[in-house]
Design a protein around this nucleic acid. Sequence first.
DNA 1: AATAAATGTTTACCATGGTAAACAATATGA
DNA 2: TCATATTGTTTACCATGGTAAACATTTATT
Lengths: 186, 186
Amino acid sequence: MTKESNDASHWRDFENNPLSHSMAHYLMAIDSLRNEFGYARSTDVADMLGVSRGAASMALTQLKKRGWVGEDHNRFLLLTEEGVRIASMVEHNFIILSKFFEEVLGVRQDIAAGDACKMEHLMSNETGKRLLWLMQDLLSDEELAVRVRERMKEYGKGCNIANVDECPICHGAGECLVTAEAPDTH
Amino acid sequence: MTKESNDASHWRDFENNPLSHSMAHYLMAIDSLRNEFGYARSTDVADMLGVSRGAASMALTQLKKRGWVGEDHNRFLLLTEEGVRIASMVEHNFIILSKFFEEVLGVRQDIAAGDACKMEHLMSNETGKRLLWLMQDLLSDEELAVRVRERMKEYGKGCNIANVDECPICHGAGECLVTAEAPDTH
DNA sequence: AATAAATGTTTACCATGGTAAACAATATGA
DNA sequence: TCATATTGTTTACCATGGTAAACATTTATT
């Protein structure tokens, strides 16, 4: 294996993701505003997202060009069919991820929501649907679900793996985060 | 609730993440090169990541300023203690996520790896450690693990939830992705 | 209808993180 | 040693996605 073949081709899929985090939130803001107030204007979107009217104006121009946003007969913003599909997927991914982190893994609510918000637009539909499929069981009252949740309750103040060799992931090879403190960067 | 209070304050944590996707991969490239060849130079990093030497030069200057990268007595690139910690966490997160997607959820290997690569630097240590804790069980041969994996095998060609009302997440409210096709954007 | 307020757009700017190309500094080999 | 390669850095540029401020347009209100 040459060093070039290692990683070069795929790591930049992140920046080439067809849907940016920013665009996802513009779409969801329109969806949310229309559900709550029945209409959405550029300024409302800007206020909801906490950006300037100029930023919203330019972003919405892009979204219209991509065919994800349109206007209704009153010139209010409207998601196209495709726009609705994308916004729905991201919203669904957020709910799936945050519920999984919070209700299955037992992560603190704000951390769970923060992590989910960052990842929501990056999880593929395939992964999202399978995670949902699993959670149908894990959030039920059946024995399997109860035992998984019981197991997570044993996760104490920190991870109780005392020895790095016990890590089922790295098997003690190299640096292991099981016992490590979180860096300042997270 | 005003519309402003909704979402404005947190969705931009994504772009304010102290560790960018790009920076994470520069750190991991140095780690990987040193493990494989015993040294890492700017050009090697550029080749491994498939970017120009100029881009690598500028990125590495930033990483040195942040105190995550240094040079050894031969002027070869070196991760600082903090750099190692960050690179390790991201690498660990990648392994945890891709194993979870592939071996627990049954996602196709390339999709699992792609999703994990995009999310690796965004998952908090808290969430990562708890997911690892859960996977210690789910990847074992114990009854609980076997039953979870059996359950995932029942996930057929698609999600078999025929009716949106059956979705345990949205309970039929609004657009539901359970039965939806993946948009082109993923 | 005239004025004022609200809304929307454009412009010049910022930062990140790429490129290509010019240039500078090191190695290396005849 | 001297010429050539390799390695590293800088520069001018690109795109995304923000800001503030100027400007234009639309909607109310008197």
